[in-house]
Design a protein around this nucleic acid. Structure first.
Lengths: 396, 396
DNA sequence: TCAACTTTCTCCACTCACAGGACAAAGAGC
DNA sequence: GCTCTTTGTCCTGTGAGTGGAGAAAGTTGA
């Protein structure tokens, strides 16, 4: 099919598109209940959307005691590409306009190889998905990168773990390669948007989404919108000081949170424990695999390894301390924990909860759920699709 | 005069009122340059505002090379009451509709005496100001209280330092007593709004306003609007843990920031230093006054007392550490330091700056000013007036 | 099977918001 | 005095939006 070119002509149409995206097929009457427009005006706008091809007729709905309604839905041929670039792996997914994942690929990757190599891989993954017949082309793409982004331009700025990416025009370059509009954001923000769209944060206006993977970051949602800060680095909590004069960190400071708990720190601690003979379980895994990652710690903990459990507990306490401070400051309605280390599961969550509930003010924690993300690795790509759809479903 | 009853009928009128409030007298032409409306439409809305009496004609302006323009301005008879209730003192001020302070009173007060006693005092101060001829009545009042507030209802919730205030219907009670609309907010938020309106934060969209007085709080401004959090306790940073397993705090935890640096903590440390003979300067002041407060420490430091300087430096370091974390998290465009202890001046600011610039990420601190508030004790009352004017200058 | 009621959707007339041009008023500059 | 500029008003045309009438397509119960 020819790719989507139309954009909503006004705020009403944008609103309707988002309702159809989030609520699926709907009749004019149902839409009318949600938008505070007269039925005549609503019909006009729906007709115009039908003309653009963004929206198509979708048959008759069951009767609700009277004439059956004519449903409309977003064009089922629309395709969005969601890309979530992590430090050590990349997720690429294809969604329809309702942001349902139609296909999903994950591959290992080293982000330090630079944007050219990475995008070559991403484009080949996208081509592979297209080859399965899921899409003939893309109407838009959302890209998440593991570092701060100057959002309006879609350019990474001073990313600590992504040498070679600083200032690379990700948005422009990919837009040219893919031949469709592209939006770029921090991977943590996309995870927050994903959980907001289809996960645990569907009904919350103000929440925090803490992603613990190779590094640690925090998505901040204020009034339903992602807050990115003055220079796009909001939520960069990995280098908040967790321990005064503590361990040296790669950033040059001491006692940073990331130096104590993150995928990388956990792997290092596990190696140390295995080599010092503190954990039989970890030593065995080291001998088998020739190396250790957070996954090994999770497995060892699941098998009851005391050293691993203690590592998780201590790390959770550190993270929990920092989150406790953020909860006092931000007073969110929900805290979501996600990222690679969520495999550590309940042990981690319990440690975090303990610290937060103990240290933050009762008024801030009184009715505060602290939960694991619901979407796992798909949160990022769904968030990416949501990012570009929010853009395309807004007046030009 | 009869009190203001009209409200703007639509968003255009609201916009115009705020432009006149923030920019003073203006001609139709000047207003037209700022609102993106046709001249005819603009003239209609201005005429309607003139009819309501909210706006009045203000003579002819000087020519700019052609026909002289007819200025309009907000009704100069409008009066707002700004009240800033602190833990140990209260500020009450009268402003005009352009939020210029026409009269200002400050009195000591103990907020623990409860709302009834406090409001008796506030009302008598307001009456005193009225008696000077500054106002015949008030068109609206903004009230700041030193604790969290359920903003929509204007009711304090679980305020730690204000026993007896929990759930007291401040807004409703004062509205009845004063016979005008009332809005209630946290004192720290009002300080932020004051500095935003007339102080150092005039041009910044996202900033933090740290108020260090009897306690410590932080106003959070996102996209020009105060962020209050899910339960109204956002910015309550006084009980963030600054030192793991540190000093016991009144809240029951240990190592809270407030236990290390605040008006109260400083007074206690100063007393200790004086009694232990660590500071001749402080001991002399103790003998003279029979007690010590943060003001004494400031004076002693100004006189070169090493102990006092060191106390300020150490406290500043603690506060700076916490702010550093918040800067990494929030990535503000400005940090304002205000409250009673700003008398400690440059020593304090230097300590805070050192910590923040050392510990936060370069991307977040690269272009981050950290400055003292410009308005001092008037920030709160101006913010209060701004709060109620924002409310009244919005469509009903 | 038919009448009465519901729900959905379309059509049409009317109102109101708003833009933009013509024009008048008032001044500056030469 | 003449021209140019700025300000403000008046008027008309256009498009957005409302709300009612009524047609279309159902359900339900007698």
């Amino acid at each position: 099919m020819r790719r989507m070119t139309a954009r909503p002509a006004n705020a009403h149409q944008a609103r309707l598109l988002k309702l159809l995206r989030d609520g699926g097929p709907n009749s004019r009457a149902q839409l009318g209940d949600q938008v505070d427009l007269s039925r005549s005006k609503l019909a006009v706008e729906v007709d115009r959307l039908l003309e653009t091809g963004l929206v198509v007729a979708d048959g008759l709905a069951a009767s609700r005691g009277g004439r059956r309604s004519h449903n409309v839905r977003l064009n089922p041929g629309l395709r969005f590409l969601g890309v979530d670039i992590g430090a050590t792996s990349v997720d690429v997914a294809v969604t329809n306009a309702e942001l349902e994942t139609l296909g999903h690929l994950n591959q290992p990757l080293d982000v330090r190889e630079g944007p050219v190599a990475v995008f070559e891989q991403v484009l080949s993954m996208a081509a592979k998905l297209r080859a399965t017949g899921l899409a003939e082309g893309f109407d838009g793409a959302g890209i998440g990168v593991p570092g701060p982004v100057r959002f309006p331009e879609g350019v990474p700025v001073a990313p600590p773990i992504m040498p070679g990416w600083d200032g690379f025009p990700v948005r422009e370059a990919l837009s040219q390669e893919l031949g469709c509009p592209v939006m770029v954001d921090n991977d943590v923000n996309l995870m927050a948007m994903g959980e907001q769209h289809a996960g645990v944060a569907r009904t919350v206006a103000d929440f925090l989404c803490v992603k613990i993977g190779t590094g640690i970051g925090c998505g901040i949602v204020v009034g339903g919108h992602v807050y990115r800060g003055t220079t796009g680095s909001a939520g960069d909590i990995g280098h908040i000081q967790a321990v005064p004069d503590g361990r040296p960190c790669a950033c040059g400071n001491r006692g940073c949170l990331e130096a104590y708990f993150s995928g990388a720190a956990l792997a290092r601690d596990a190696l140390e424990a295995a080599q010092q003979g503190l954990s039989v379980e970890l030593a065995a895994r080291l001998a088998t695999n020739g190396g250790l990652t957070a996954v090994d710690v999770a497995a060892a903990a699941a098998a009851g390894d005391a050293t691993s459990l203690e590592m998780i507990r201590e790390g959770g306490n550190r993270v929990g301390q920092v989150i406790a401070g953020l909860v006092s400051f931000f007073n969110p309605g929900l805290v979501v924990i996600g990222g690679g280390v969520t495999g550590l599961g309940h042990t981690l969550l319990a440690a975090i909860r303990t610290q937060v509930y103990r240290q933050s003010l009762p008024l801030a924690t009184g009715n505060l759920p602290i939960v694991l993300g619901e979407l796992g690795p798909t949160a990022g790509v769904i968030g990416a699709a949501r990012l570009i759809s929010d853009h395309l479903f807004s007046p030009a």
